[in-house]
Design a protein around this nucleic acid. Sequence first.
DNA 1: GATGAATGAGCCTTCATTCAT
DNA 2: GATGAATGAAGGCTCATTCAT
Lengths: 201, 201, 201, 201
Amino acid sequence: MHFKSNVCYNKNMPKVINHDEVRGKLLSQCLNLFSHEGYGSLTMRKIAKALNVSTGTLYHYFDSKEDLFRQLVEYITHQDLFDVEKALQGADTFSERVDALLRFFIDREDYFLNQVIIWMDYTRQQGEGTEAEPGPREALVQYEQGIIRLLGIEKEVARFILAAINGLVIQRYIDGGRTSLATQSILIRQYLLGQEEQGSL
Amino acid sequence: MHFKSNVCYNKNMPKVINHDEVRGKLLSQCLNLFSHEGYGSLTMRKIAKALNVSTGTLYHYFDSKEDLFRQLVEYITHQDLFDVEKALQGADTFSERVDALLRFFIDREDYFLNQVIIWMDYTRQQGEGTEAEPGPREALVQYEQGIIRLLGIEKEVARFILAAINGLVIQRYIDGGRTSLATQSILIRQYLLGQEEQGSL
Amino acid sequence: MHFKSNVCYNKNMPKVINHDEVRGKLLSQCLNLFSHEGYGSLTMRKIAKALNVSTGTLYHYFDSKEDLFRQLVEYITHQDLFDVEKALQGADTFSERVDALLRFFIDREDYFLNQVIIWMDYTRQQGEGTEAEPGPREALVQYEQGIIRLLGIEKEVARFILAAINGLVIQRYIDGGRTSLATQSILIRQYLLGQEEQGSL
Amino acid sequence: MHFKSNVCYNKNMPKVINHDEVRGKLLSQCLNLFSHEGYGSLTMRKIAKALNVSTGTLYHYFDSKEDLFRQLVEYITHQDLFDVEKALQGADTFSERVDALLRFFIDREDYFLNQVIIWMDYTRQQGEGTEAEPGPREALVQYEQGIIRLLGIEKEVARFILAAINGLVIQRYIDGGRTSLATQSILIRQYLLGQEEQGSL
DNA sequence: GATGAATGAGCCTTCATTCAT
DNA sequence: GATGAATGAAGGCTCATTCAT
């Protein structure tokens, strides 16, 4: 452990910077910005100011605003390579696992909302353009399969649960939190437990 | 005195134009534009071109881009003072009514998606601004109560259904329609029928 | 004197309107507008609203904004075909006539200021364009000759007096009235009386 | 330590530009523009083109058109912190000093006219707005006190002289230079010399 | 004659982007 | 690598002007 150092002592190469690392650090601060302002309304200057860098720096790490946004989507998509797995820790019974899943989403409601908003903006941005990159679609599948692994339910049921959670988060966004997170969670819970009883998973 | 005439021949009277009617006609063509481009990316010039009028005309009927958007939200919100009622025609049994409801949403999936997207943009636009106008929130309540009247279920269950439908529509938007509308409808259907059996409505 | 009437009783010509009369009535209300806002900042809509007519009506009486302005200058120029003459009434001694002149300007300071401002805007508007119309220049000569007739002084002295008054009015405009009208008038008075004594008129 | 260098070789340091210096250089070229076109008729594009920069650059140095104009007024006001003093050089007798003063204004008639025009536009611009900034008023006082110091005359007499000069310049502007600068100067000269004889300074 | 709806050029301002330092 | 000055196209909005009624 001793004498290990990542710092380069070469005199003539003063700045040793991991390009990708900096890029990641920048991206991680962009989720809220894009989510709150919207792709079209967010400007490069706003981003630069929020990240405490110059616009020049932004363009050093990203080709364009669109590229930055694309990379952001990729970043947040690969970011949570579904830590749902962690939510499984010490959850033995089906009921416990359902609780863990719900808690997982409830705890990170804000983050999840931002994510969905970004996905929608991204989908819109691509528009009738290039069918190209999967992006959010892939993330959705990851969530879906995480749920399947965790609860051992069918794909379509998992999608239904995911849709319900998505819808719940969005509904709360629109109605300013008037929809009760607790009550709705209970309904989802009841549904899942009911499914298990019927053995229809 | 027997000579009836709907036309006003007043001399010195200028072009007679129903201001509100024209405004409504313009608004009705804006939903798709805002939904597809997003508030921030849609420009007044694009709108003008799409509606086949000049930007000057746009500003003759609306104070600003924001005002136009606000009026659009109000317009689409009051537009469907919930024609869900119509979906009730000749639906006697609970099962039939559930089908009618699902069909209602499936038939107008595109419109409903546009609506939700607009609502989200609107919510974002208001941001930390004035808590003032309810707008979409009110519309959400209308849908909710329509469902309650139609199916005779509890408020929270109605909200759950609405959230599920919302989530489904959005999921299909994001994953490019890979989620099956038919299959998911069946799941919703089963859930509602199950609820009735348990008498837990 | 009896039975004289300017009104036309022809049934099929209901509106008998003296075009020039209306035009004059409109023009008379424009001096303040142009003076306060400035040619470049005053819009046809503002004018229309201030005069309680439509922009269409404005264009019925004037070819363009520039034409309106030009006619305004002509109007105010010919308006006071120098009623200074009136100020001469019952003014016998030189001293009395000087007082009458000063009073004349003091009483209508606002109007005179507006006039000078308009003249300057007009001069600027013509710019390096057509050397064409004399306009304000002509008005200046009229004032000058009025003063000559009233006081019997030389042309260059009359111009000096006019310049002093012009300068006084403008100075008061710029410094917000801090320059005393009374005191300055006394100085002008003293100068003129001194001139007479020397017989250098 | 003996090696002196004015150039900053800091690495990672961007283009070094003296913001205020550039701003001043831009302002100094604006007097004629605003004077010739008028605040309302002069556009930012015209300014940019005349200064050989882009509109973007203009907005990099000034917040708005109004801010630019305000700063221009401040600039030309503080510009000539009354170099009248210089006109005093080697002027011993009262007569010589009067000549120096007149020559001062005659030599820079154009500049002085532009200045007065700007002041009037500025006064108009502020309109019934904020009574706030003195601007031109302050400049007027400076001229006034310069004259007092130079000629040792009373404040009101100095103001009278200033008004006469103002009025003369404006009159020449309006009548296209028909009023003789030489002749009028002589009148002002005579007036001042007459004042001195009477000892009424 | 009078109105005000309609137009599109043009205004002030901002944006994404470049590049000398 | 990092900065921010510079650019000019484009955005929201207004203007002078026209014209059907």
